[in-house]
Amino acid sequence: MSAANHWNLPGLRNGGSADADLIERRQRAALETPAVDGGTYITTNIGGVDCLVAGERMASRALLHLHGGGFRMGTPRTWINYATDLARRTGTVVVVPDYRLAPEHPFPAAIHDAAAVYDELASTASVFVGGDSAGGALAVSLAIAARDAGRPLPAGLVLLSPWMDLTVTAESYSTFDGADTMFSSIAANEAAEAYLQGLARDTALASPLHADLTGLPEVLCFVGAEEVLVDDSIALVTKASRVGVRHELHVVPTMPHIWPVIMLAAEQTEQARSAIARFLTK
């Protein structure tokens, strides 16, 4: 991967090995969601990274979506429904890279992979960058890295329940510890350790709430009102607005972590996806 050369990214680091429990969880997490009616996708290599590609590969508009899973699990297959739906609604090519995971490949390997895919897409399309959960951190980090390296900026950022602060100190971790069954401070701390492996938790490129957000493109963000990560989204848009970044935040009651990806039949998912479709096509 050569992205580091013109992106000025920190160099790759050696990682540790995944324990048996994590390997098993990764295998379990490999379930597929169904493509929407009339939606198509392929898996192909873009910029040296295997990607799920929904819609027309050479479309003039792309959404590079970085999946969640605490930097250490998740495969693009779970995002098939989300990707094919947005592609069908908007004519955008939606690309979900199978980026390298921690702890085998700690920070910044995932950002190197995302940058390589971004470069390739940006050569033919206007590229939005999105992400859910830990993928939200990668998405914002990628935009920051693009800005700092003088690369073309993304056309916009689409964030779903993004994890913005790896220090795991937000009050919502305790407020919603009981209500949010999908994510917790324990899981967050484990994931952050596996990803950072000794680097400070507030490393700006890993933990974008600690970065300068000046000059970032417009942000569309969704978060459940009773998620442990709700404070991360609120803090992100608060900080972004202070430096003049345009944003739209939807704090949606009763919805679980990353519902627009996984709650396939919910009315709120339809609402979120149609808002994203408008954002991509406006």
Partner: peptide, 16 residues
């Protein structure tokens, strides 16, 4: 159809 949602939620968490 609706069970696909439970499946997706389980998958997102890496549950068996």
């Amino acid at each position: 159809d609706v069970m696909e949602e439970t499946k997706a939620m389980a998958s997102a968490e890496g549950l068996a």
